[in-house]
Design a protein around this nucleic acid. Sequence first.
DNA 1: AATAACGCTTACGTAAACGTCAACTGCAAA
DNA 2: TTTGCAGTTGACGTTTACGTAAGCGTTATT
Lengths: 149, 149
Amino acid sequence: MTEHEERRLIDRQAGMADANSKSQFTIGDLAREFGTTLRTLRFYEDKGLLNPRREGQQRLYSRRDRARLGLILRGKRVGFSLSEIREMLDLYDLRDGQVTQMRVALSRFEKQVDNLRRQKEDIEEAITELSRTIEIVGGILKEKERQSA
Amino acid sequence: MTEHEERRLIDRQAGMADANSKSQFTIGDLAREFGTTLRTLRFYEDKGLLNPRREGQQRLYSRRDRARLGLILRGKRVGFSLSEIREMLDLYDLRDGQVTQMRVALSRFEKQVDNLRRQKEDIEEAITELSRTIEIVGGILKEKERQSA
DNA sequence: AATAACGCTTACGTAAACGTCAACTGCAAA
DNA sequence: TTTGCAGTTGACGTTTACGTAAGCGTTATT
């Protein structure tokens, strides 16, 4: 079965009625719930972000795995790379009492906010530059149209 | 000579006193003036963005080439990919009287502004989400510190 | 028995924009 | 003549986050 077909299957199913009551999840369960693909989950595992147990060949995800996946996806949304996320999760596993770990995370989050702010500024500058160009080009265009009229 | 060494050479030279009086430029001239590398200029040529003439083996850039390079770099700054830039430059070369060409460019610029606005929104959302997380984590941390005191 | 639904693995492909090497050539100054 | 600087041409490497292909196994249903 190709990934494409897999996705169609995922898309057309919804019934996650008991997602919170369950304590074990298949790879398909999680893909559906979080709107990702099987490939992605396997990829994350390959990168050491997830470690579901195996029932024979099959992956079985615990509630903890599921929570980790949630953290991974949030991390992505806010612009962390997978390797950064991995580091933080590893750190989280060490739990040296959590306080130190939380402090570390906190400072990374703050740094990332700075990054995002910088990116935002870059984009704003680009918008400004492009808008200026648009006005200039637009002006010339109008001029030309006036002449040819 | 490695790229690293090349860059050092570039960095330590400045004298572009006559950059505007000249009409011919070596690859090093342009790299210095625009703050890029030789490799980059060769790469752009490879991608069909630049077409300097040759004096034997050596590349010789005209003022027109130099202007094109300026456009390329502006295009990059505002978020166009090299292939998009290439298309627009090619279009520019056709000069069907320029008006049609300018209209095409104009609409692309406007689309790109939309893209940039969207990107900006995404970043703003990320900032919001991360800030919320920071507050939560920060709150818990304070709580813990209070307890241990 | 066949098909569907779910899962598995290996492994190559993709896009973007160059960086990094290697191995030369040409020219001028010391 | 030996450096040193400037330039040349391949061609492979890098990064990120998966997509896609291909082929195979397991259950449950039809």
